[in-house]
Write a protein that binds this DNA or RNA. Structure first.
Length: 440
RNA sequence: CGGAGCGUAGCGCAGCCCGGUUAGCGCACCAGUCUGGGGGACUGGGGGUCGGGAGUUCAAAUCUCCCCGCUCCGACCA
């Protein structure tokens, strides 16, 4: 992409409504724009990141055996009356009426709808286990939206719902998602730590929040330092191997880890002092088992091997891709701007032509640009007639992992200067070596 | 929902208390010249329902009332 033909409305100054760093940087980098309190338009740069996150989430859900579908944003109030949540949900739910005065709502979550879909078709334990998910916009009318995308009213969410014949089956389904989440966040360039969470009406140990550490995080968290180095299950995990998954989950839940709500000072003190981590964190995922909470009132039952019908055991598993865009920035930035992990970067590289209009640099940039495009590498060519300093600042701000700096000086020796945004390191490479590096 | 603020050009702000030329500054934008390795300089331009409405007054960005929007703290939450 040539910057001269892209739509990238960079802001030099920070709009005053933006308080936290991800919000500030997203506005400044031209990634998004606020349309109303807690409601945002994604501009091209922001959308590219969102799509990458979404795709990684999707791939890991699929790998774990979940099956994608897509439910609507608008739901009928009747469904929610069946589960008796229509009145419970309160003002957080955006209620609307259609032209026939039917009561509708903009979905804040989809337990009811997925249960309705399930019960319409599934009759036998032979069709289980089943895990259905979708990635769809949700709306929760927060009393006080804030922190930009971190706490918006409209947000993109991946929500998966598992169905099993019994509790042991549900545990395995839960473990699949648990491992899928560890892998998902690792692929996004984040270190996530599962922390015991409020387990709702069922109780038990099957509810975890996945937290990433960021100094600007919203809540205080406590954990054992070893979690920072635990290996994340690799792509070869067998999601059908009950024992293997259970042991992975056991390992990842063996040490102390809690958010401030669940914090137990005594438990934390039991950790050796040098292993205690007290930091700030951001919740990026939440999984839980809720048994027959919806299947019972909504009569989602299947026949077991014994011919007896029983309500299915369910769990639900959420990840907010739109929130993750902000969360990743909170975890990956410096004073100059964003530092995208490579997996989610909107572009892999930026070409900075330090002297636009100079025949030498123009030609070198054009050449490299075409070669990279031909190799399928996502590259942003900064071809505007701006001063070098301004181009550096823009590239740093939008956080592209590799900057290829091409100016008259370096060109004299036939070299490009490559700067890695992550650590600021620089090296001089020949054009061929540059392409080679960026192709990896 | 309690508390506190803010709304003046695309962005950041001054002006408001104490009413009075043509509403100003920086950045951004447009034209041109010189420049060219960390947000350049100069010259010349364009851009405003002062959030909206009502009122007070000879006169309102400025005073009064009502409404709308947004932000922050708290309670709440993926």
């Amino acid at each position: 992409m040539r910057l001269s033909r892209f739509f990238l409305p960079i802001l030099r100054e920070t709009p005053k409504e933006a308080e936290i760093v991800s919000h500030r940087l997203m506005l400044r980098a031209g990634m998004m724009r606020q349309e109303a309190a807690g409601i945002y338009a994604f501009l091209p740069l922001g959308l590219q990141v969102l799509k990458k996150i979404e795709q990684i989430v999707r791939e890991e859900q699929n790998r774990a055996g979940a099956i994608e579908l897509l439910m609507p944003t608008i739901q009928s109030a009747d469904l929610w009356r069946e589960s008796e949540r229509y009145d419970d949900y309160g003002k957080e739910m955006l209620r609307i009426e259609d032209r026939h005065e039917r009561e509708m709502l903009y979905g804040p979550t989809n337990e009811e709808m997925i249960t309705d879909i399930f019960r319409s078709y599934v009759r036998s334990y032979k069709d289980l286990p089943l895990n259905l998910y979708h990635i769809q916009w949700k709306f929760r009318d927060e009393v006080r939206p804030r922190f930009g995308l971190m706490r918006g009213r409209e947000f993109l969410m991946k929500d998966a719902y598992s169905f099993d014949i019994d509790q042991p089956g549900a545990r395995h389904s839960y473990n699949k998602m648990f491992v899928a989440y560890l892998r998902t966040f690792a692929r996004l360039g984040l270190r996530s730590i599962p922390m015991r969470a409020e387990s709702g009406p069922i109780g038990g140990d099957m509810s975890h929040e996945f937290i990433i550490l960021a100094s600007t995080g919203e809540s205080e968290v406590f954990c054992h330092r070893d979690y920072l180095d635990f290996p994340v299950p690799d792509a070869s995990v067998d999601f059908d191997n009950v024992a293997e998954l259970q042991s992975a989950v056991d390992k990842w839940t063996s040490l102390y880890a809690a958010t401030s709500e669940k914090h137990d000072a005594a438990g934390f003190e039991a950790i050796p002092a040098d292993k205690r981590v007290s930091a700030r964190g951001i919740e990026v995922g939440h999984i839980f088992y809720f048994g027959t909470k919806y299947s019972e009132p909504m009569k989602a039952v299947v026949s077991g091997p014994d011919g007896v019908e029983r309500p299915v055991h369910m769990g639900s598993y959420g990840i907010g891709p739109s929130r993750l865009v902000a969360a990743i920035i909170e975890a990956c930035h410096d004073d100059a701007g964003i530092k995208w992990p490579e997996a989610v970067a909107p572009f892999r590289a930026a070409i900075l032509n330090l002297k636009q209009g100079d025949s030498g640099t123009d030609a070198a940039c054009e050449h490299l640009y075409r070669d990279l495009i031909a190799k399928g590498i996502e590259v942003l060519y900064h071809d505007l007639d701006e001063r070098p300093g301004s181009k550096f600042a823009t590239a740093d701000l939008i956080g592209v992992p590799y900057q290829v700096v091409i100016g008259p000086k370096g060109l004299a020796s036939g070299m490009f200067e490559i700067k890695r945004r992550a650590d600021g390191s620089r090296e001089n490479l020949s054009p061929a070596a540059t392409i080679d590096l960026l192709s990896r």
